[in-house]
Write a protein that binds this DNA or RNA. Sequence first.
DNA 1: GCCAACGTTGGC
DNA 2: GCCAACGTTGGC
Length: 156
Amino acid sequence: MTKRYWLMKTEPDVFSFQDLQKRPGKKEHWDGVRNYQARNFMRDGMSVGDEVLFYHSSCDPAGIAGTASIAVAAQSDPTALDPKSKYHDRKASPDKNPWVMVDVKFLREFKRFVTLKELRETPGLENMVVIRRGMRLSIQPVQPEEFAIILKLGET
DNA sequence: GCCAACGTTGGC
DNA sequence: GCCAACGTTGGC
C-alpha cells in the first residue's frame, strides 16, 4: 500500500507535540475522536507508516509543529466505554463501539513552526483542507505534494 | 470574548 | 426524514 499523508489537530494546552515527544517510546494513543468523518479517515484510510502533520489549534499562532507517523492502525477506542472518561459515549458498548483510535509516533520537530497564516500564503497549498473557511475536521487527508511543500517550509 | 460555521440531537 | 435548537470548534 502506498503511504498516505494526514493532518491531525490538537489543542496544545491539552496535548502538544512536545507532550508526544516526552511519552514513552514517543508514542501515544490518538483517542477521543467523536466525529464520523474523522473516524472514517482513521479506520479506512490510515496505515502503519503513514505520515502526519501535527497541527496545533486554538492557540496563537495556530500551525504545524512537526511530523509524526502512524505506529498502530485503527483499534477500538476504550475511552468511549469508560464512564469516567470525558470521551465516554453512553451509546457505545463493548460489542458495538463505533469509535476507533490509532497510535501516533513522534517523527521530527520542525526547525521552524509553520503558521496557518503561512499556509494560506504559500503557493501550492491553495486547496489544502485546513485553510478552508469553517473547516473544523480534526483529521484531514493531505496531498503528497502539499506535504512536501510544508516539509520544506518547516526545515528551512 | 465574539461569532461564523458546522455537526448533532430530538420533537414532530 | 425534516429541520430548529443547541453545542462545539477554532480563527480572529
